[in-house]
Structure formats: structure tokens, C-alpha cells
Amino acid sequence: MGSKEIHCTNKLVKTLAMTDNKLPLMVFDVNETLLDMATLKSKINSLLGSNKGFGVWFEMLLHYSLVDNCTSNYHNFTELADATLEMAVKDLKADVTPKERKEALQTIKELSTYDDVPKGLQLLKENGFRLVTLTNSPSATLTAQMQHAKLTEYFEATLSIDTIKKYKPALETYTWATEQLSVNVSDAILVAAHGWDIAGALRAGMQAAFIEREGQSLYPLAPKPQFIGKNLIEVSKSIIAHYS
């Protein structure tokens, strides 16, 4: 009985200490950071008849999101995904109908989390951190993703750039996100598995944490993030230790 009471007391003291300190707002990218896109990759590769199909399409998708930013001609990510998939179909000379394209892209709403994600998020929540998302996906897609992956309960807010109509890594997008939660941009940490997202957040004045997902790397010409880990559990523990 005595040891149990001491354990609970220590846990309470630590929790109160963390709450009293000014903890940063945790801002999470979604696709390839929290959600594993392996099923979508398989679907797109099969549709395009090439193991390189997903890579060709996804690079186009990111490229033309920046074209929309630069030309002030916004289309939501669902529209861009279909348009660039049409381009990939032509480039790879695949025989795909518009209906087949749209059906394949619906897979993005049915992605599963990486195994480390629930525990990593729970660690942060238990230690008093506020969690929000910031994604290039439109709000309807984001809501479906969070519900399917059973992640809704972890997040105070689920933010989509669809509101501001500027794709990450536009600097104003990161500032806008922190303003929605009444937090200074310097008092937030972006957690992402994309070097371009990390670079944008750091340039905007955020702190950043990079998850070293397979196939992802940091941009060498950008500043290094404050936290780096092989998975979200490792990143979460580093952040918690830093602010303890």
C-alpha cells in the first residue's frame, strides 16, 4: 500500500510541475507522420501498373500544390490529387478511367496509424501537452481519416490549410495555425516526417521534431530541428524530458 501511494504521489507532482511550466503546442502533420500510406501506395502502383507509380504521382501532387501557392490559384488537395493522378496516368501510359482514379484516391480516408503513434500521442497528453493537427488535406478528408484511425480523442483541434488556402510549407500557414490556438509561433513544435515541412516550420519561427520514417530525410540546406527520433514514442520522450 505504501509503495503504491508514493508512486501515485510522485506521478501527481510530476504532472503538476509539467502543467505549471509553459509547454509548447504540439502541431502534427498527418499523412506519413501519423498515418501510414502503404495501402494507398499499393493501390496507386496497381492502378498505374508500375512500382514507381505512387512516387511519380505524389511528387506531382506536392509540386502542383506549390504552383497553386505561387500563382494564388487554390484548388483543394482532393482536386489536386485527382488532377495530378490524371497526369501520372498519361506519363506512365496507363489505361485508367476517371472513376477508377477517384475510387483509388478514396483510400486516403482509410489509412491506419503507424504502430508507434497511439502510445506517442498518449505520452504527450498524459504530460499536459496540447495536441493539434495541421494538414494539407481538406477538412472533410481529415475528419474521415481521424475517425477511421481512431485518433480524434487525442487532438484539441484538427486544422486543415483548406481554411487559409495556402499549402504548407508557406510560412503564413504555420503562423495561422498557432493563431487559431492563441499561441505564439515560437511556442509551438511541428512534428512531421517530411523535410520540406520541417524546413517551413523552422523558417516560420516554430520549433520542430522530425520522425525518421522510412524513405524520408531532412533538407540539408535548412536548419536542423530541435528533436529527431526514429518514431513518435522516441520523439515524445525527448520532448517530455526537455520540458520536465
Rank of each mutant, 00 (worst) to 15 (best):
V183P: 01
T152D: 15
V183W: 15
E126H: 07
K93A: 14
P98N: 13
T175R: 09
M146W: 11
L35H: 14
L12Q: 13
R213Y: 14
E86Q: 12
W57T: 00
G55K: 11
Y74E: 07
Y219I: 07
L12D: 10
I161S: 03
T84A: 10
A83H: 07
M37K: 06
Q147C: 12
E212M: 13
P225C: 05
V117R: 01
H242P: 00
A149K: 05
T107E: 14
L80M: 08
L61I: 04
L66W: 11
V235I: 02
L151Y: 10
D36R: 07
L40M: 02
E32F: 12
V96K: 11
K168Y: 13
L105H: 03
T71G: 10
A177H: 08
K230H: 09
Q147D: 13
N127R: 04
S46G: 02
T97W: 15
F58T: 00
V117A: 01
N76R: 02
R130T: 15
S160G: 00
T33F: 11
T158F: 07
T158D: 14
A170D: 04
F129A: 05
L218K: 03
P98D: 15
E126F: 11
Q145C: 04
E179K: 12
T19Y: 13
D20P: 11
V185C: 13
R213K: 09
D82G: 08
K93S: 14
V30S: 00
T113E: 05
V117S: 00
E156Y: 13
P223G: 13
I161G: 00
L123Q: 09
K230N: 14
N10A: 15
A170L: 08
S42M: 08
S112C: 10
V13Q: 13
E214T: 13
C8W: 12
L134C: 03
V56I: 15
E126R: 03
I198L: 10
L111A: 02
S160L: 01
A94M: 07
A209Q: 06
A188S: 05
D20A: 13
Q180D: 06
L35E: 09
D36F: 13
